[in-house]
Design a protein around this nucleic acid. Structure first.
Lengths: 329, 329
DNA sequence: ATCGTTCTTGTAATCGTTTACAGATCAGAC
DNA sequence: GTCTGATCTGTAAACGATTACAAGAACGAT
């Protein structure tokens, strides 16, 4: 026995399918009609089929959030923020994960044309022309949480990495650290390149020269630890490390501990993202808050606004960072 | 200009919609026909509408994974495992988050009748008769990653918490710890009650009496820290703490550190789940591996099998735990 | 040349909704 | 009693795909 359809409800209630549909969608109907339909719906346990509905009305009332790595706690923060906004607007949020490489992301964006959802928030790790093109041509609105060139003409919400780096470097200066090393993620990623430039500029602005700079394989704990090892083997005398995200920072801290170096006494460590992990790590990690929650919120709002009115000019929002000082520095 | 439909492709190629559909679905066709269709598809950038398709064929080729809290790293592990299995089988995985209370879960299960996906893996925090009923009556196959009564007659994959507790307690014994406290999550949750019983039994089996037992507000870091505070204020002389999951354990470790107690020298700490956090915490956390990756994998396999054949008798799989000994004990 | 197969293609019905349109009903006003 | 509007309800046509069925083409065998 398969699911009851609207026709079955109509039959059971002795009315037409149109009337059932109307009652269910809150259109005006007599009390008697509404009552009969409700009774039949309850009796049969009828639930409307969203596929058929969205085929007809052209909307799914679902929104998609695509992230590269669910293991990265910064995405958890963003996810929660997005979820809150879109569910308040009556949408269902579904999360999918893209792989680490840009081809996966392009496939996902292209796939949106199949009508899975009414909109997409994507936080791409790597961006190339293909991806930009796929976003521009996408049949549903797309908001990028991250950095794409202005000429792409898409709604974006991004962090201000350079400013964040400045906060980190200045904080180290006021705490008298001068031999600063930088542990980045892969430089061929969007955050990787932004943070590399941010770091260089921030150091220059403060008339400091980096003692070392390494790039981890990816933005994970294990990669951070490996990068930390490399760093400490090659470069003696480091008194501070800035890492491109919290996972890398925690990896570095483990490597420091393994070598008997104390944080913050011997080496100060600063992460970025100010994710839950920063608070959970030991010692608690000083971290640059790049506003991931706010980015998520704004991105969701931008998406809703564009769904509302597709002709509005694309906006590019920049969220300002702040520094969460904890015990690691 | 809206998305091209199969009719537009047919027109452009000068063939019928049926032929386009056949070519796209790999049914036999002449080379000439295939070529014309492919050319038209490429030219128009046609992408089939999954809503229409799944309305007709009655399948969406999507599967849903529902978890209570994306911030809990154990779900990350599960998610990855599920993703791997289902995508290998040609399904798209979408993740949704339920709230912490059972009503949200029931709503989600009921909502599956709308046809969002072909199946559901749900890992419920709390289970009641309503939820069981909704699962039994659900129009699509549901696999529970967690514990529901056998009489419910649903496919389940669950951890063996009692056995896991035994591993933890025995490990503490061999390392000469006797004053063992237990930090649980809410006891009205499925894992909470299972672990409470597991702990009690494991202690009894080893002729130990717990020095203290507290229940945190929920399974989060902050709650763990608060529970740790309560514990340490009320009970002096503890030399080991078992926590019901890694987040709680890390919270307790922070509270220990705040009071100048060293881990493991003064107090040994053992977590459960063996999530990424266990490895990342400092000192690295000894944790009971409850097989979350395997649970995810098996749950996904069970779901696929049931989609294949809905008449098979429900299976209840139990995954065996192991202990990952690290430096916190 | 005719017939029977087989293979390819097109027509049209269908999935479960929503909604434009038209028909029915009813109340109120004259 | 008839007419006008307003209001409610039903019929049927979409939405964009798949697929049963039938018709047509091609081809070899007789």
């Amino acid at each position: 026995m398969s699911r009851p359809t609207i026709a079955a409800v109509a039959r059971a209630a002795g009315v037409s399918v149109a009337s059932v549909s109307r009652v269910l969608n809150g259109l005006p109907a007599t009390a008697e009609m509404a009552e009969r339909v409700r009774r039949a719906v309850a009796e049969l346990g009828y639930v409307p089929d969203s596929r058929a509905r969205s085929l007809k009305v052209g909307r799914t009332f679902q929104l998609t959030l695509a992230v590269a790595d669910v293991g990265n706690p910064v995405y958890v923060t963003m996810m929660r923020a997005v979820e809150e906004v879109v569910s308040a607007a009556g949408y269902r949020l579904v999360v999918t994960t893209t792989g680490p490489d840009v081809a996966d992301e392009v496939a996902l964006v292209r796939g949106m044309a199949r009508g899975y959802a009414d909109g997409l928030v994507i936080s791409p790790l790597r961006v190339d022309d293909d991806l930009i093109k796929s976003i521009q041509e996408c049949d549903v609105p797309v908001v990028v949480a991250g950095n794409v060139p202005a000429r792409a003409g898409v709604d974006t919400v991004r962090a201000n990495s350079p400013k964040g780096m400045l906060l980190a470097v200045e904080h180290l200066l006021t705490t008298k650290r001068h031999k600063v090393a930088f542990v980045n993620g892969p430089v061929d990623t969007v955050p990787g390149s932004a943070r590399a430039k941010g770091f260089t500029d921030a150091m220059k602005a403060n008339k400091l020269t980096p003692v070392a700079e390494v790039a981890a394989e990816d933005f994970t704990f294990a990669a951070g630890r490996a990068a930390g090892r490399e760093l400490l083997e090659d470069t003696p005398g480091i008194d501070a490390v800035i890492a491109a995200n919290d996972l890398l920072a925690v990896g570095v801290m483990h490597e420091l501990a393994a070598r008997g170096l104390r944080v913050p006494d011997d080496v100060a460590v600063i992460g970025m993202d100010d994710s839950a992990l920063a608070e959970q790590s030991f010692p608690p990690l000083t971290s640059v808050n790049l506003g991931s929650a706010e980015r998520g919120r704004r991105a969701a709002e931008l998406l809703l606004a564009r769904i509302e009115d597709d002709s509005r000019t694309p906006r590019r929002i920049v969220v300002q960072p702040s520094l969460s000082v904890r015990r690691s520095s």
